[in-house]
Design a protein around this nucleic acid. Structure first.
Length: 795
RNA sequence: GCCCAGGUGGUGGAAUUGGUAGACACGCUAGCCUUAGGAGCUAGUGGGGCAACCCGUGAGAGUUCGAGUCUCUCCCUGGGCACCA
């Protein structure tokens, strides 16, 4: 009999589905394991090998947990709102609903071919009214808690296409579609007040997350402790606040810089400078924040003609406008201290502004603050009035006290984290459940009108307004319910809102009277293992934590206990995307080799968390392995296993048990291959074969299930438990002692396992080659590492 | 520019966390088997050298009896930077 993957895979997938094997009884959550992969966006590219690389190994881990006796809940769904479907609609006229449903349908089929444990009865699709009903509920809940508010914020605007552009649609400041220069447009938009939770989001206690992700989130939130200093604008009845973490340098301020977007800027500019400043503002609109903050870029700026007064020494310093100051961080005004800040120095040198030193380090030398020592500097303040000679940190405190007393400033904690802008001037998203009365006041749509249906009579083509504004039905519906002159909000929600709570929906996605089943959520949350790409470290993962804290009414609640990032699979070094035309489909490989071999190959490619560049070179090695496994199982059953086979088997059990925990599937497979290399020729007992199959089962579920049955078992292998190894087979009688002279290997000797240091050294010194390297040398030191090596240090 | 990773044979990668660098595979070479499609089996395979040996984990320095692993500097590649998700 030959190994025929396609036949047995169909057989077992059908068998599992018919038996309802993976439909979880949610009522029983004792020893639960909630295993979650980030749900995909159903793009027109369909599934690519990167998806498989994620889902296959995670399912293998879930199967391993099942074998360890856990009740595994592994749900799946689709994050199906989003820009690509809308762009496709603009291009082809196919309604997003239609193309999305088609893509979802196709991807479901592709995913089923993997043979995962997904509980399809719990699937969620975010673009379905049954789901977005509750996304809207989430919005209303935040609104109720005063965590949703409106304010003006700029969007990328293409004047020619008359539409808002995503950052992705802007390249080099130009519209991707028509090439026109992109400008900024101010729109009133909805925000979630995530900053309210900044301090709680900085806490990651008890979470089994990658260090780097925690670090990235911390940097993203960007807490800095400092103060606001108030500067009176000379000749105006106006005060500008500057935020600084280094108020100790305030006597070194020789200019102050205001952001081009600052609302007070126009009232401050003098007539003689007006033309120049206005032109500068226009230029700044064309640049992205990233570009503006880049430190290697030539600093630009324009004098406003006005002066501000240093509240510490009364000195008048010029007020400049420059685009390296961003309105959305801090106050939009910064103090310029060229002596202690490189960027300020560049600016001062370019525009020939004064430079004044105000702090020095321990050695009395001038220094520039950088991020590393911003909060922990030693040195003292100089030439700073009554604060002169104070140590820097003490000086800061004194200065803040002084400001607070004189009401010219105050201590302040500043976060880089910005509030979450959730308004999108797009069609394919959940409508924001808000209506406006004839006076333009916002009112929440009452819950009984949810889902606040996304209208279908819309024009997807950009016409200068949000697509929903073109729906007659939408307005008619609003007037019918709320009264004449009432208008619906026409923006939809950021798709990150959809994905910020879906893990709460999974335990009972059919629930009709609430977003999630509180009882089940209490039992099943937190998610025990959450797996997704590292690109989500700062956005999705912060949003989900935030929404979870809000909905659970517990600022300490965390949704994801263990977090793992699968590596990225690239093609020729680049991220796979349709626009680059480098998407690799898994279908042909599954067709040719079957799911088990393809899945094992993806696992064998390298460490799960590292990913790599796609190549199918090497898949044949896995195919050979699968054949050898088949032949091994179907070969003669021997009556007794040799010591060698037993040692190999228990070594493989040990390796698999340890490495599965770390998701190091590649080395688990290497261990299984080593076993097969040892056991294939001599054969093994049925018992040994079964134990081996149990190790293989998570990695090649269909193959293992088929072989399990062949060996006479009639229940699924996934209920057979996980084997444990017996140490007695692993302790060697002898080991290879490495003998080094001055750190270089000069001999390898087989010695008894429990050799003493004296005996080991004696044996080492008897070796001819070692002797020759010691000749004429003086012994200085003898290093003995038990079970490993001897190092003879001579001179 | 800023934040975060990562650079090991011809290739993917392994290395008990400071102790034999290259496990397990791919590829390649030679031989066997008379050989229908992912052939199989055996042996070899980091570089140099006849050899003893020498050199080798992006580059350079440092710590150490001993460094792929720790420290510093530099170079390169990837991810993210708030409207792709």
């Amino acid at each position: 009999m030959q190994y025929n993957p396609r036949e047995i895979e169909q057989k077992w997938q059908k068998s599992w589905a018919d038996a309802g094997t993976y439909e979880v009884d949610m009522a029983d959550a004792a020893k639960k394991f909630y295993c979650l992969v980030m749900f995909p966006y159903p793009s027109g590219d369909k599934l690519h090998v990167g998806h498989w690389y994620n889902y296959g190994p995670v399912d293998s881990y879930a199967r391993y947990m099942q074998m360890k006796g856990f009740r595994v809940f592994e749900p799946f769904g689709f994050d199906s709102f989003g820009l690509p479907a809308e762009n496709y609609a603009i291009k082809t006229g196919v309604p997003p609903k239609e193309s999305t449903e088609k893509n979802v349908e196709y991807m479901r089929k592709q995913i089923r071919a993997i043979g995962t444990m997904y509980d399809w009865s719990k699937e969620v699709v975010t673009s379905s009214p049954e789901y977005y009903n509750w996304t809207q509920w989430v919005f209303l809940e935040l609104y109720r808690r005063e965590l949703a508010y409106k304010k003006k914020a700029p969007v990328n605007w293409c004047p020619k296409c008359q539409t808002v552009l995503a950052n992705e649609q802007v390249s080099d400041g130009r519209c991707e579609r028509c090439g026109s220069e992109v400008t900024k447009k101010e729109l009133t938009q909805w925000f979630f007040n995530i900053k309210e939770y900044a301090e709680d989001l900085l806490q990651h206690e008890g979470l089994d997350w990658p260090e780097k992700t925690i670090l990235m989130q911390k940097n993203w939130i960007g807490k800095s402790v400092g103060c606001d200093v108030s500067w009176e604008v000379d000749g105006h009845n106006l005060v500008l606040d500057t935020f600084t973490t280094t108020v100790d340098t305030v006597y070194g301020v020789t200019f102050v810089v205001i952001s081009p977007e600052h609302p007070e800027l126009k009232s401050i500019v003098t007539d003689s400078q007006r033309a120049e400043v206005e032109q500068y503002i226009e230029e700044a609109k064309k640049r992205s924040d990233i570009e503006r903050m880049a430190e290697d870029r030539e600093k630009t700026g324009v004098f406003t003609g006005s002066y501000v007064i240093n509240p510490f020494n009364g000195e008048k310093v010029p007020l400049w406008v420059a685009d390296y100051v961003l309105m959305n961080y801090g106050t939009g005004v910064v103090m310029g201290v060229p002596a202690h800040d490189q960027r300020d120095m560049d600016f001062a040198e370019k525009y020939m502004l004064k430079i004044v030193q105000s702090v020095v380090d321990e050695k009395g030398e001038s220094f520039v603050y950088d991020d590393v020592d911003k909060y922990n500097v030693k040195g003292r303040i100089i030439d700073s009035g009554e604060f002169t000679d104070l140590p820097i940190l003490e000086g800061r405190e004194k200065m803040i006290e002084y400001m607070e007393k004189k009401k010219i400033g105050r201590a302040k904690i500043q976060y880089k984290l910005r509030d979450w802008l959730i308004s999108r001037q797009r069609y394919w998203g959940a409508p924001i459940p808000i209506v406006y009365d004839p006076e333009g006041n916002a009112h929440p749509v009452p819950e009984e009108h949810l889902p606040w249906m996304l209208p279908t009579d819309v024009d997807y083509l950009p016409k200068g307004k949000a697509p929903l504004a073109s729906s007659e039905e939408f307005v008619a519906r609003t007037e019918k319910i709320f009264g004449k002159g009432w208008r619906p909000e026409v923006d939809t929600m950021d798709t990150f809102v959809d994905s910020s709570w879906y893990f709460l929906r999974y335990p009972n996605p059919q629930k009709e009277d609430g977003p999630f089943d509180k009882e089940l959520v209490k039992k099943w949350l937190p998610v025990d293992m959450y797996v997704g790409g590292p690109e989500h470290a700062c956005m999705h993962l912060l949003y989900a934590r935030f929404i979870h804290k809000v909905l659970m009414d517990d600022k300490k609640a965390e949704p994801f206990k263990r977090l793992v990032h699968q590596g990225l699979i690239t093609k020729d070094g680049a991220k796979m995307s349709k626009s680059k035309g480098n998407v690799v489909s898994p279908d042909e490989f599954v067709e040719k080799y079957g799911s088990d071999i393809f899945r094992m190959y993806l696992m064998f490619m390298g460490p799960f968390t590292e990913g790599g560049d796609w190549s199918d070179r090497g898949i044949t090695g896995i195919a050979r392995f699968a054949d050898r496994v088949w032949n091994f199982i179907h070969g003669e059953h021997v009556g007794k296993d040799s010591d060698e086979v037993l040692r190999a088997l228990h070594g493989a059990i040990k390796k698999a048990s340890e490495d599965m925990e770390k998701l190091q599937f590649n080395t688990v497979l290497a261990g299984l291959m080593s076993f097969i290399n040892v056991a294939l020729a001599p054969g093994a007992t049925i018992e040994a074969k079964k134990q081996f199959l149990q190790l293989l089962a998570p990695l090649a579920p269909h193959l293992a299930e088929e072989c399990w049955e062949f060996l006479g078992e009639n229940k699924t292998i996934f209920d057979a438990g996980w084997p444990s190894y017996d140490q007695k087979y692993l302790v060697a009688q002898e080991f290879e002692l490495v003998v080094q002279v001055n750190g270089k290997v000069r001999a390898k000797l087989m010695v008894p396992a429990e050799v003493s240091k004296e005996d080991a050294l004696k044996l080492a010194l008897e070796n001819e080659n070692v002797k020759s390297h010691l000749e004429g040398k003086q012994m200085k030191k003898e290093i003995y590492v038990p079970g490993k090596l001897v190092n003879l240090v001579v001179s």
